[in-house]
Amino acid sequence: MPLIPEEPQIHESVPGPRAVPAAGRPAMTPRPVPGPRPAPTRSGSPGPRSGPVPSPRAPRAAEVGAQAATPQIQLIPASAQGALDAADEAVDLLLDTGRSPGEVLVLTTGEAHPWAAHELSFGEASYWAQHDAAEDVFYAAADADRISTRPVVVVAVNGGSDAAVAGALPAAMARAGALLIVCGDPQRVNALLPASA
Protein backbone atom coordinates (compact mmCIF):
# COMPACT_ATOMS: atom_id res chain seq x y z
CA MET A 1 0.00 0.00 0.00
CA PRO A 2 1.55 3.35 -1.01
CA LEU A 3 2.31 5.82 1.73
CA ILE A 4 0.48 9.11 1.52
CA PRO A 5 2.46 12.02 2.89
CA GLU A 6 0.77 13.84 5.70
CA GLU A 7 -0.11 17.45 5.28
CA PRO A 8 2.26 19.72 7.16
CA GLN A 9 0.94 20.89 10.46
CA ILE A 10 0.54 24.66 10.67
CA HIS A 11 0.87 26.11 14.14
CA GLU A 12 -1.23 29.04 15.20
CA SER A 13 1.86 31.07 16.00
CA VAL A 14 2.83 31.16 12.33
CA PRO A 15 1.77 34.41 10.65
CA GLY A 16 -1.08 34.15 8.21
CA PRO A 17 -4.88 33.98 8.21
CA ARG A 18 -6.29 32.82 11.50
CA ALA A 19 -8.74 29.96 11.72
CA VAL A 20 -11.74 30.61 13.88
CA PRO A 21 -12.67 27.64 16.08
CA ALA A 22 -15.95 25.97 15.19
CA ALA A 23 -18.87 26.49 17.51
CA GLY A 24 -18.70 24.11 20.43
CA ARG A 25 -14.97 23.45 19.97
CA PRO A 26 -12.56 25.05 22.44
CA ALA A 27 -9.85 27.25 20.96
CA MET A 28 -6.39 25.72 21.18
CA THR A 29 -3.70 27.69 22.91
CA PRO A 30 -0.80 28.42 20.59
CA ARG A 31 2.48 26.69 21.28
CA PRO A 32 5.81 28.30 20.53
CA VAL A 33 7.35 27.10 17.31
CA PRO A 34 10.98 26.17 17.70
CA GLY A 35 13.22 28.08 15.36
CA PRO A 36 16.88 28.18 14.56
CA ARG A 37 19.10 28.67 17.53
CA PRO A 38 22.04 31.04 17.48
CA ALA A 39 25.40 29.34 17.21
CA PRO A 40 27.18 29.22 20.55
CA THR A 41 30.03 31.68 20.84
CA ARG A 42 33.23 30.76 22.55
CA SER A 43 34.57 33.17 25.09
CA GLY A 44 37.21 35.37 23.56
CA SER A 45 35.94 34.98 20.00
CA PRO A 46 34.05 37.84 18.44
CA GLY A 47 30.39 37.35 17.73
CA PRO A 48 28.58 38.54 14.65
CA ARG A 49 29.11 42.22 13.91
CA SER A 50 26.31 44.64 13.51
CA GLY A 51 26.60 47.85 11.54
CA PRO A 52 29.01 48.73 8.79
CA VAL A 53 32.30 46.93 8.45
CA PRO A 54 35.06 49.40 9.31
CA SER A 55 37.60 50.22 6.68
CA PRO A 56 41.01 48.69 7.18
CA ARG A 57 43.20 50.69 9.51
CA ALA A 58 46.45 52.21 8.46
CA PRO A 59 49.51 50.27 9.58
CA ARG A 60 50.85 51.14 13.01
CA ALA A 61 54.29 52.72 13.27
CA ALA A 62 55.86 49.45 14.45
CA GLU A 63 54.34 47.65 11.44
CA VAL A 64 55.63 50.25 9.03
CA GLY A 65 59.23 50.03 10.20
CA ALA A 66 61.65 51.18 7.55
CA GLN A 67 59.27 50.56 4.64
CA ALA A 68 57.88 54.09 4.60
CA ALA A 69 59.60 57.28 5.62
CA THR A 70 56.58 59.35 4.60
CA PRO A 71 53.16 58.77 6.17
CA GLN A 72 50.12 57.95 4.09
CA ILE A 73 48.10 61.12 3.44
CA GLN A 74 44.30 61.27 3.31
CA LEU A 75 42.32 64.38 2.47
CA ILE A 76 38.79 64.84 3.79
CA PRO A 77 37.04 67.69 1.98
CA ALA A 78 35.61 70.23 4.42
CA SER A 79 35.06 73.95 4.58
CA ALA A 80 36.98 75.99 7.14
CA GLN A 81 33.79 76.08 9.25
CA GLY A 82 33.30 72.30 8.97
CA ALA A 83 36.92 71.23 9.39
CA LEU A 84 36.64 70.64 13.15
CA ASP A 85 33.55 68.47 12.70
CA ALA A 86 35.27 66.51 9.93
CA ALA A 87 38.32 66.02 12.17
CA ASP A 88 36.12 64.80 15.05
CA GLU A 89 34.40 62.33 12.71
CA ALA A 90 37.79 61.10 11.49
CA VAL A 91 38.90 60.56 15.09
CA ASP A 92 35.70 58.63 15.85
CA LEU A 93 36.28 56.40 12.82
CA LEU A 94 39.91 55.81 13.80
CA LEU A 95 38.87 54.76 17.31
CA ASP A 96 36.03 52.60 15.95
CA THR A 97 38.48 50.76 13.68
CA GLY A 98 40.85 49.89 16.48
CA ARG A 99 43.23 52.78 16.93
CA SER A 100 44.20 53.47 20.52
CA PRO A 101 43.30 57.01 21.65
CA GLY A 102 46.92 57.65 22.61
CA GLU A 103 47.98 57.13 18.99
CA VAL A 104 45.97 60.10 17.68
CA LEU A 105 46.95 63.77 17.61
CA VAL A 106 44.57 66.47 16.31
CA LEU A 107 46.01 69.80 15.19
CA THR A 108 44.15 72.97 14.24
CA THR A 109 45.38 75.78 11.98
CA GLY A 110 42.82 78.34 13.11
CA GLU A 111 40.83 78.57 16.32
CA ALA A 112 41.69 76.03 19.02
CA HIS A 113 39.62 72.86 19.25
CA PRO A 114 37.01 73.20 22.04
CA TRP A 115 38.66 70.35 23.97
CA ALA A 116 42.05 72.10 23.88
CA ALA A 117 40.51 75.41 24.95
CA HIS A 118 38.74 73.69 27.84
CA GLU A 119 41.84 71.81 29.02
CA LEU A 120 44.05 74.89 28.75
CA SER A 121 41.64 76.67 31.11
CA PHE A 122 43.06 74.43 33.87
CA GLY A 123 46.60 75.55 33.13
CA GLU A 124 49.42 74.72 30.78
CA ALA A 125 51.05 72.23 33.16
CA SER A 126 48.08 69.85 33.33
CA TYR A 127 47.40 70.30 29.60
CA TRP A 128 50.93 69.27 28.59
CA ALA A 129 50.96 66.50 31.20
CA GLN A 130 48.09 64.90 29.26
CA HIS A 131 50.14 65.19 26.08
CA ASP A 132 53.16 63.56 27.71
CA ALA A 133 51.05 60.72 29.17
CA ALA A 134 49.86 59.85 25.61
CA GLU A 135 46.86 57.97 26.96
CA ASP A 136 44.17 59.87 25.07
CA VAL A 137 43.58 61.79 21.85
CA PHE A 138 45.43 65.07 22.19
CA TYR A 139 44.30 68.36 20.61
CA ALA A 140 46.69 71.26 20.00
CA ALA A 141 47.44 74.20 17.76
CA ALA A 142 49.40 73.19 14.67
CA ASP A 143 52.20 75.60 15.55
CA ALA A 144 52.73 74.30 19.11
CA ASP A 145 56.37 73.46 19.78
CA ARG A 146 56.06 70.69 22.39
CA ILE A 147 54.08 68.23 20.28
CA SER A 148 55.68 64.81 19.85
CA THR A 149 55.22 62.26 17.09
CA ARG A 150 52.15 60.02 17.09
CA PRO A 151 51.17 57.28 14.63
CA VAL A 152 48.17 59.27 13.36
CA VAL A 153 47.91 63.03 12.99
CA VAL A 154 44.64 64.71 11.99
CA VAL A 155 44.86 68.34 10.84
CA ALA A 156 41.76 70.54 10.81
CA VAL A 157 42.39 73.40 8.37
CA ASN A 158 39.88 75.60 10.15
CA GLY A 159 41.42 78.97 9.36
CA GLY A 160 44.78 80.64 9.55
CA SER A 161 46.73 82.41 6.86
CA ASP A 162 48.07 80.56 3.84
CA ALA A 163 51.58 80.94 5.28
CA ALA A 164 50.47 79.41 8.60
CA VAL A 165 48.74 76.48 6.87
CA ALA A 166 51.69 75.98 4.50
CA GLY A 167 53.98 75.71 7.55
CA ALA A 168 51.58 73.52 9.52
CA LEU A 169 51.16 70.81 6.89
CA PRO A 170 54.84 69.75 6.61
CA ALA A 171 55.19 70.00 10.40
CA ALA A 172 52.15 67.72 10.81
CA MET A 173 53.59 65.32 8.23
CA ALA A 174 56.82 65.15 10.20
CA ARG A 175 54.86 64.29 13.38
CA ALA A 176 52.74 61.57 11.72
CA GLY A 177 54.26 58.13 12.03
CA ALA A 178 51.93 56.25 9.68
CA LEU A 179 48.94 58.37 8.67
CA LEU A 180 48.22 62.06 8.13
CA ILE A 181 44.58 63.05 7.68
CA VAL A 182 43.94 66.60 6.50
CA CYS A 183 40.42 68.01 6.83
CA GLY A 184 39.99 71.13 4.74
CA ASP A 185 39.27 72.71 1.37
CA PRO A 186 40.93 70.40 -1.20
CA GLN A 187 42.03 73.23 -3.52
CA ARG A 188 43.65 75.18 -0.69
CA VAL A 189 45.26 72.11 0.87
CA ASN A 190 46.65 70.80 -2.43
CA ALA A 191 48.05 74.22 -3.27
CA LEU A 192 49.78 74.47 0.11
CA LEU A 193 51.05 70.89 0.51
CA PRO A 194 54.76 70.55 -0.18
CA ALA A 195 55.60 69.11 -3.61
CA SER A 196 57.20 66.04 -2.03
CA ALA A 197 53.92 64.97 -0.36
Rank of each mutant, 00 (worst) to 15 (best):
M1Y: 00
L107Q: 08
A80L: 03
V64I: 11
Q81M: 06
L169C: 04
P26Y: 00
P38I: 03
P59F: 08
R175K: 13
V165I: 14
T108H: 13
H118M: 13
P32V: 13
D162T: 08
A133F: 02
T70S: 10
A80D: 11
V157L: 08
F138L: 02
E103D: 12
P2S: 15
I147H: 02
I181D: 02
G35S: 01
A86C: 04
D136H: 11
Q74E: 12
P48R: 14
P5W: 14
D162N: 09
E89R: 15
A112M: 15
P17C: 07
L192M: 01
C183N: 07
V91G: 03
L169K: 07
Q130R: 15
R99N: 11
I181R: 05
D145A: 13
S13V: 13
R175E: 10
D88P: 02
Q130L: 15
A142W: 14
D162G: 05
P71V: 12
V165P: 03
G160C: 10
R18W: 11
A22E: 15
A68E: 13
G47S: 09
T149Y: 05
P186H: 13
R18D: 12
P8E: 13
V153W: 01
S45W: 03
G51S: 07
D143V: 02
I76M: 02
S196M: 11
V154K: 06
P36S: 11
V14I: 14
V106C: 00
G160L: 13
S161P: 00
G98K: 09
E124S: 09
I73Q: 03
G51M: 10
V155W: 03
Q81L: 05
S196C: 08
Q72R: 13
A61Q: 01
E6V: 12
P17I: 07
C183G: 02
A197N: 10
S126H: 05
A142S: 15
G159S: 09
S43P: 06
V14H: 05
A112F: 07
